[in-house]
Structure formats: C-alpha cells, structure tokens
C-alpha cells in the first residue's frame, strides 16, 4: 500500500536539507519596490549592511550591484539609511507594479 501524503512527512517537521530557505522566494510579499539610482550612489554599502535579508547584491569587485528582487520584501530600510550624494538619495521606494 502506498503511503499517504502526511505519512511521508519528516518526523517532528525537522528540515533535513541545509540552506533550503533559499527556495522560499519572499519577493512576492513586496508592495513597495526600492529603486537604485546609480549616479547618486557613493558605494558606502549601508544598504548591504542594513538589509535584513540578503537582497543587496555585491559584485566580485566589492561594488554595489542591483537588488535581488526574488527575496526583497520592500521593507524600505535601505532607502531610509541611504545617505545619497549631496542630498540626493541613491535608493527611493516606489509603488510596486507601477
């Protein structure tokens, strides 16, 4: 007899695969979307440091790259912390889907 779906679940809901949270794409939760304005970016990496997820990508040279929208939930912390250049923010939040 084949096992029922619930009979095949791991005992005690233990997750036996390391790093499997990467499969959980949380970008769909986003209602606000950060926009990176490169000409105002001073490469301070505050956004990378403050991001509660790992949604600010960094290039091999250690430079700031585009957002990882598969995981960015649009919390806006990066935009808040961004010092920008001469009063102009390098990250601004926009309505998602606009």
């Amino acid at each position: 007899m084949s096992k029922k779906y619930w009979e095949k679940l791991p005992q005690g809901s233990v997750v036996l695969e390391a790093g499997s949270s990467a499969k959980f794409k949380t970008g769909g939760w986003r209602s606000m979307r950060p926009k990176w304005i490169e000409e105002n970016c001073i490469q301070c990496m505050f956004c990378w440091m403050y991001c509660p997820d790992m949604s600010v990508k960094v290039t091999a040279e250690g430079k700031r790259a585009e957002f990882d929208f598969e995981y960015c939930k649009g919390c806006g912390i990066c935009a808040l912390e961004c010092p920008g250049k001469k009063g102009n923010k390098a990250i601004v939040m926009e309505q998602e889907g606009k």
Binding site: Y5, L9, S13, V14, V15, E17, S20
Partner: peptide, 20 residues
Amino acid sequence: KPKSYGPLILTDMYHEYKRA
C-alpha cells in the same frame, strides 16, 4: 548533516503534520 528544527509551516502543510 546540517538540519533545522522548528520551521514555520502554514496552511499548506500544518494540518498534515497534526494528522501525522
């Protein structure tokens, strides 16, 4: 064999874990 205890399991599978 790294593993995680105490995951978040919502509407899609919680019911099945309780049945088990």
